[in-house]
Amino acid sequence: MGIVACRRCTKAQPLGTQTCPRCGHVLQSREPLSLQRVWAFWVLGLMCYIPANIYPMLKTRTLFKVEESTIIGGAVDIAHYGNYGIAAIILIASVVIPLGKFWAVAFLAISVKQRYKVTNHRRQILYEVVEYIGRWSMIDIFVVAILSALVQLKTLASINPGVASIFFALSVIFTMLSAQAFDSRLIWDAEAKDGGPARDER
């Protein structure tokens, strides 16, 4: 149609306009390096996620012993005490959601190039879920922050953050960047290319 649209303020401009006159956002019909950036951040996120699960997240020092627990170990401990709900929240926020996100972003990036029997609308929903839910993985970092600030009872007990917390935070940040780098318009391009005007969906 000879139009390039601003993704930030939805205003249409003639093709070839460099920056949006309304909001100053850089105009690009499609982000040229979108997929490369997605994969770069994806790999970084995965690399940080591995040490995040191997090293201890929390160092708990009580009267006589020092305990170091990893993410999964900590959740298992909580489940042993009978708090199944909290154990489930932690497992979902720090294991299920991150792994699901890695899978979902990879799937979206691959499905842009290859055809799958998943409707565009499903993929769009998947993308929105990933963008929305990614931030919730930060929950574990905040729990560690609150615990280690709060539980500082001199000799009795103290909790300190472990090395894994820094890797976990980085992993969450990288996967968020990876999801943001994905240009959702690519989802809809795949269909338009296959013939048939893209607008006639539904």
């Binding site: 708090n83 929240i89 919730w136 905040f142 709060l150």
Partner: peptide
């Protein structure tokens, strides 16, 4: 917008509270 995480911190509080509840009075 995506980097503003106040509401997530609130849930984090709830989880932390339960974790400490049997260790000490909060």
């Amino acid at each position: 917008r995506p980097w503003s995480m106040a509401e997530i911190f609130a849930i984090g509080c709830a989880v932390a509270l339960v974790k400490v509840a049997d260790l000490a009075h909060v």
